[in-house]
Nucleic acid binder design. Structure first.
Lengths: 254, 254
DNA sequence: GTCTGGGTCAATCACTTGACTTAATCTTGG
DNA sequence: CCAAGATTAAGTCAAGTGATTGACCCAGAC
């Protein structure tokens, strides 16, 4: 009468009385169908019925039976991708060691994502799906708890912070979030273009990754306007700024 | 029997047979209610009925009557904010003149948005609303046609491109879109925090603007990895890169 | 072979939604 | 003031939704 099994844990368990059957196949088909529909029509706009139907289930109860709710289905879709990305990030984290080069740490953020999207082949749907989760008031919490709250991400941010020790803590945090937004939405952008067959600036995902690492590195190492100067209107600051004494902040605009 | 008037054009028209009445007041109340509900519950998740009710209309047809469809209502909400932002951008564009400083042009992108949000006071809903439009497959086109296709934006991008003439065109385009994503989603982020009473990195919207201009300037002026090097895996590139001959690109990573 | 229980199916439920209809109310020009 | 048309209220309707129910199917246990 109930399933709601964790899916991952139940595969190939030789123990016990389990007839764990074709259900896992259905589960996967539902996740696959949902992912596509979510990206193409919008997570909120797609009904559980449509997902069940697209997954080849004559039954409208399929989502409810296997996942309990749409929120849990969203979690499952997200986990399917977040886990390999997390593994790749952890692997890269080991290689980065104690690098003092911001590029290495930023690479730990960017490449696991772009390489995963490259592996998915075209068309992929995950990036658009993830971008929706980030902006929907009801779904954002799922994204945060399921994919953005992981120790490896924290370690990357720590390593990154050591590369620009002069920046205020607030700016570190601010720019870390900017980097995240940039990765998610730039990938979603490229995925959208690929999906509608448009021309893309970069020929492949690796090119996109390089562009992202370049951009985020620039963003990260940019000098931060000191708070006392930030108070003045931008024009006055711009007019005077060329004088250029600096009080030990990051490097200066040149 | 029909309304669907353009709203802006009908105010104070002394001409003709028009009894254009309190309707415009209702229109505004609907737009205001919709904006709030869209941001708090999600554009797709909110029904026209809920909007009508929240606007104090006993009638569930109010949205349909005044706007024809939810899409048109979304357009109206968007226009309400896009127009003052556009005016401010145009004003700033005049001040920027022919500046060769990327900061000035980036300021033309950032400040009109943040200043508008500051004027709205707290809580505001527009930034979250806009972020949703950017990621929803059905609504993105509205955002593009209504707010991102404007000559002033093109002029800013042109001015910006003249500040980094060595970058390939593709990278210009890529980074222009990155800047847009960064502005929208960083503002939405701050607005979310404000809405739930959380602490924010920056004390006010002007601080957020300064942080954005700093970050985007860094992003914009960052050197682009040449295509021939981009082909190699990142680690090999990182190991060799310190040698540092450069073939006329932007400034080098230091 | 029978039994058991997980998985699937078909039917039904109360509910919400957008569109529509009709009547009441307001606004304005004459 | 009054008629005409715009606006609002109130009620109805078919379609679609998530949830529930009980019957059916089938692989393995006994």
């Amino acid at each position: 009468m109930k399933c709601l099994c964790d899916g991952d844990d139940m595969i190939m368990t030789t123990q016990g009385r389990g007839p764990e059957p074709r259900a896992s196949g259905t589960r996967e088909r539902i996740i696959t169908a949902a992912e596509r529909l979510f990206a193409e029509r919008g997570v909120v706009a797609v009904s559980n019925r449509q997902i069940s139907e697209a997954a080849g289930q004559g039954n409208n109860t399929a989502v409810s039976y296997h996942f309990g709710s749409k929120e849990e289905l969203v979690r499952a879709v997200l986990r399917r991708h977040a886990e390999p990305i997390e593994r790749a990030r952890r692997r890269r984290l080991g290689e980065a060691g104690a690098s003092a080069d911001a590029r290495d740490w930023i690479g730990c953020l960017v490449h696991p994502v772009t390489e995963h999207l490259a592996e998915l082949g075209a068309p992929s749907w995950f990036a658009r799906f993830g971008a929706q989760l980030m902006t929907d008031p009801g779904l954002r919490a799922i994204m945060v708890s399921e994919a953005l709250t992981t120790p490896s991400l924290g370690e990357v941010l720590d390593g990154l912070n050591r590369c620009a020790p002069d920046l205020p803590l607030e700016v570190h945090i601010e720019r870390g979030e900017m980097a995240g937004q940039l990765i998610i939405h730039t990938c979603a952008d490229r995925e959208r273009r690929l999906a509608r067959g448009a021309t893309t600036a970069r020929t492949d995902w690796h090119g996109t990754a390089v562009g992202l690492v370049d951009a985020i590195t620039g963003l990260w190492l940019a000098p931060a306007t000191p708070a006392d100067r930030a108070e003045r209107p931008a024009r006055a600051y711009a007019a005077e700024r060329t004088g250029g004494d600096d009080d030990g902040g990051g490097r200066e605009w040149g």
